[in-house]
Nucleic acid binder design. Structure first.
Lengths: 120, 120, 120, 120
DNA sequence: GTGGTCTAGACCACA
DNA sequence: GTGGTCTAGACCACA
C-alpha cells in the first residue's frame, strides 16, 4: 500500500490527519500502541523527522501520549475522542452550509443537493 | 470594509475565491465592469501584484475577460456561470459526505447533523 | 552577548522560555515585531530549525503570531499575556510551597526562609 | 501504592528525589535499613536497573551507604541530612525568587502571592 | 530498541 | 527577504 500525498498540503499535516481520522473512526482503538516512529516513517515513506512532527502535533492535541523509551499510544480518554469527533463533524457541517450560502444556495436547495447525493 | 485574511491560505487564492463567489452568487452581474486593479488592491489592502495574480487566474477560468486599455469585465456567458456554480455545489457536497464518512459517520447520522443545523 | 545553554534542557525549550519571559516581563511589547528567524538563530547561535521549533511552540501558545512572508509578532492580546504571567507566577509559588512541605518545612518556617531572602 | 511518573523527567531522577525527600523530611530515619533493590523496584513498578541507578546516585551523595551482602542504609550522619535539607531549602527559595523576578514580579508583589497562598 | 534533539542545508511559495 | 517544509543523518538518554 503506497500513500499518495497531495502536493499542496504539507506532508506532516496529511500524516497527522490520516492518523487522527483512524483514531476518530475507531480503526485505532483507545490505548492501542502505535508502531514506532521509525516503522511508521518507513511505512509512509517519509523522513522520521516528518513523522515525528506529525505525531508530536497529535500529542499536543492529547490524542496520543508517549511512554518514554517505550512507544506512543492512542489516548485512553474516549470522551475526548468522542468530543473531537463531534466537534469536527459539526465544523465541517457548518463549513458546508456556509460555503453553499456564500454562492447563493439556500437551505431548501441544499436539501436537494443532499437528497441527490443520498440516493446514489 | 476591511478583509480578514486567513494566514494559512495564500492571499491571492482568498481574493480569487472572494470575487469568484461574488460572480457565482450574482453580486457581480454578467458583463459588469470590475473596479481597476489599482482600486481593488487598495480596497482589499493588498499588493497590486497579488490582486493581479488573482484576477489573471479568474481570467484563465474565463469568468472574467479583459478589454485592452478599457478594463476587466465579468463574463456575459450566464451558462458558464451557472455551470461553475452547480459544479462547485456538487463538489463541496461530495467533499462534505466524504469527510463525514472518513471519520465513521454514516448517511443517517449525517442527516441528523444536517437537521440540527437546518433548525437553527 | 553570548548565550550559555544548560545541557540538561533542550535548547529549543530554553530559547522558548527566554522569549516567553521577555514577553511576560514586557521587554518585548505587545504587537512588537520579532527579528527574523534567521537573525534570531544567528544571534543565539543555533540552527534555524531549532529556533523555528521554539517559535512555533510559542505560536501554538498564541503568544506570537505570524504574518506570512512578513515576519512574526508578539500577540496584541495584553490580557492573554497578563493571564499567562499570573498563571505562571501562581504555579511557581505553588511548586515552591509544595517542594518545601515535601521536605518537611512548614509554613512558618517557609516565612523565615523568605524573610532572610527579602532582607538581603 | 502506585507512583505516577512525569514522562519528561527521567524516572531514576524521580525515584532518587522521592527517596531523598523521604530521608530529608524524616520519613526514613537515620540508620534505617532500606528495602532491597528488588522489593523497591517491584513497589515502584520500575526496572531494577533504574532503581539501582537512583540508589547509587544517593550513595554518591552519601545519603545512603551499602553494607556488603547485608543491604543499604540511610546515613547516620544527622548533620549531613540537616545540611542537605537547609541547602535544598535555600536553593529552592533562591530559585523561586529568581524565577519571579525574571518575569518582572518584584519583592513586594512576591509577598502578595505568598500571602494569598498562606491564607488558603 | 524507543523516542527526542539538533544540525546542515536544500527548496518552496509568497509579497 | 520572509517563514515553512522536508530530508539525511548524527547523537543522546533511558529502559
Amino acid at each position: 500500500m503506497n500513500y499518495q500525498f497531495d502536493n499542496n498540503i504539507p506532508i506532516y499535516i496529511q500524516l497527522l490527519d490520516n492518523i487522527k481520522t483512524d483514531i476518530i473512526c475507531g480503526k485505532l482503538k483507545p490505548g492501542e500502541k502505535l508502531s514506532s516512529v521509525r516503522e511508521l516513517s518507513t511505512q509512509f515513506k517519509v523522513n522520521p523527522n516528518t513523522m515525528q512532527k506529525a505525531l508530536s502535533e497529535l500529542e499536543t492535541e492529547k490524542l496520543i501520549y508517549t511512554e518514554r523509551t517505550n512507544g506512543k499510544y492512542v489516548t485512553e480518554d474516549e470522551k475526548l475522542i468522542e468530543k473531537i469527533k463531534k466537534d469536527y463533524a459539526k465544523k465541517i457541517t457548518n463549513d458546508y452550509f456556509e460555503k453553499m450560502q456564500k454562492i447563493g444556495i439556500n437551505d431548501s436547495e441544499i436539501i436537494k443537493y443532499i437528497n441527490r447525493k443520498e440516493n446514489t
